[in-house]
Design a protein around this nucleic acid. Sequence first.
DNA 1: CCAGATATGTGCGCTACGCACATATTTCTG
DNA 2: CAGAAATATGTGCGTAGCGCACATATCTGG
Lengths: 169, 169
Amino acid sequence: MENGIANLLGALSLAVMDRIEQGAREVVGRGGETPAALIVIGYGQGMTNDKLRRILGLSHSGTVRLVDRLVSDRLVERRAGKDGREVALHLTATGAAARNELLASRISAVTSLLDVMSPAERKQLATLIRELLARQDTSEMDRFTICRMCDDRVCTNCPLPTNKGQHAR
Amino acid sequence: MENGIANLLGALSLAVMDRIEQGAREVVGRGGETPAALIVIGYGQGMTNDKLRRILGLSHSGTVRLVDRLVSDRLVERRAGKDGREVALHLTATGAAARNELLASRISAVTSLLDVMSPAERKQLATLIRELLARQDTSEMDRFTICRMCDDRVCTNCPLPTNKGQHAR
DNA sequence: CCAGATATGTGCGCTACGCACATATTTCTG
DNA sequence: CAGAAATATGTGCGTAGCGCACATATCTGG
């Protein structure tokens, strides 16, 4: 059946995310979108509450409370934004350290599944996944959403297309 | 960088699970492990509360409450088990229908990401993922956990080291 | 200069889950 | 074969994470 591949990818994705989420919970002591929020804020482009909300796919109030948790955990600070309405989210030193741990934990979780493959197989798989992602029809915000856990220290050449509405940002 | 592949697989897995979970929530109106529970119970080997708990990776009480929700939604029935202590979980007709919808939604979600690939690329990817899964060092319960969302109507040849109908108590 | 858009914060409730405890049934001893 | 331990389920209570509706502050365009 042609759907066999869909089922296999579904199973693999579940296994991958189980491991990533377990590691993330151990590192930051929180679940849900909180780990992703820490990573996204760490990208450092003067993240606002509202932008974060759209990237994480949460409601507005859910995002405010999520940031409340990060602030009470001393991982994030709310600073004044350019616009008097906006809040600029910044990582504290502790937050930046936690973020690095989080990224390392994620890479390690995925690597532990991948290291049964030979270097040639890994290269082949990387090429296929890169193509798969590159051909997706993703909006600017979709791209941030998919990449909300991505390790910017490792992913120097993101395959996702940046041109859906033809103009970025 | 050697970790590029891990990051790519992590990003893809996140995208896949986002779509699967969104569809599952639309179908059953519940999140968390509830959709997986419906699928697992539907495998139909006289599932018990305790076995379900181990497959889903939840606490005991969490599982009891999860089953409570499924029962109150008229998707699952609690029947007497062989052992006087056990409860045998069975899908109602409504539950079986919801389960089929759920599986179809999952396959459709993954397929929508995959159909940018040519048949040859899909076949190549399937072979690699199958190998990746086949070489994992998984316990009996790990396999059920990884396969807790799997479509048994589609996955006739599970690559994980044990057939899924098998029960080792 | 004021109506609408934008951005954030709050009151309130709900879902999903865990811990500790209680209860019922088997199984395993001595 | 009686009692202890193991197994399986259910309950009281609390918490984390999130959404809806509403309130407030700031910016923008006619």
